[in-house]
Amino acid sequence: MNFKLISLALIGVTLFFLVLLPFFGSPYSLVLLSNIFMYVVLTVTWVMFCGPTGYISLATSAFFGAGIYTAAVISFKVPLLLTVLVGALISFFLALIIGIVSLRLKGIYFAMFTFGFVELLLHFLLWYETNITGTTGRVVLTLSNQTVYYMMLALAFVTIVFTQYLNNSRYGMALKSIGENEMASEHIGIDTAKLKILTYCVSSSFVGACGVVMATRWTYVDPKIAFNPLYSFIPIFMAILGGARKLYGPILGAIVFTYLQEILTTRIPYYYMLFFGLLMVFVITFLPEGIVGIIDRRLKTKIN
């Protein structure tokens, strides 16, 4: 009870600080935090579905790209919030298509399918844009740093609250049971197909909304920028880095990752992807439970 109160108070203070930040923080801090929020959304949504069920989705960049492209096509024509909504809906339906046709695939096959889906979307769009519409790139509406900041803060907050609510509900437990033994969970009355597809769709729609908001930072996009497969892998890496067993793991992972990225891209711009590759291999090989694993072990030794 005490612990719960303390953490609630901590969250409240943090939130209060974050809401007021634009009034005293530097523009740079807003940009950095917006980036962190983006990676938090991408990672937490990935863990929301893939964490408990054990399915490896490599389609995050499809949903992110769908959001980015939605912004590129309609951001000058309709109000911002409507664009966000449309981006979220398109990602929802993309996830629905993937879910209906492929969630019966097991293990690595689902991963390959989702990977192929992103590439299919990318190459179809490339062909469509060059041959049918004759555009090679599109300009996106630019928003102020402050608007992007508040929208990303809201989105990250909603994503985290929703995930926390889901994890504590009976559906969170049911998702976990799917990862443990899918056949058994069907036989105790869980509509596994519906639950999997719906969770996948909802988590993906957050990614789509995130894509719309972040697209305004690029000002110019083309299919290759929008559907960069990197955005499918980075969330998984952040989840592994932070540790996917607790909700704060992916959040920590996203924060550490963004911060490292900021430092490295300015200090060692030519080597930073090399460094990330090495870090990734290192974390997977030596820290399979991520940062959360280290913290847990520390806590345990302290208690003992």
């Binding site: 293990g107 690595i108 991963a111 990330f276 590759g277 990734m280």
Partner: peptide
């Protein structure tokens, strides 16, 4: 399979950037 997939993804960056 999941771990080695991610490790290979890291490896991809390492090799490509070298």
């Amino acid at each position: 399979e999941a771990n080695s997939l991610m490790a290979c993804f890291g490896l991809q960056f390492v090799i490509q950037n070298i």
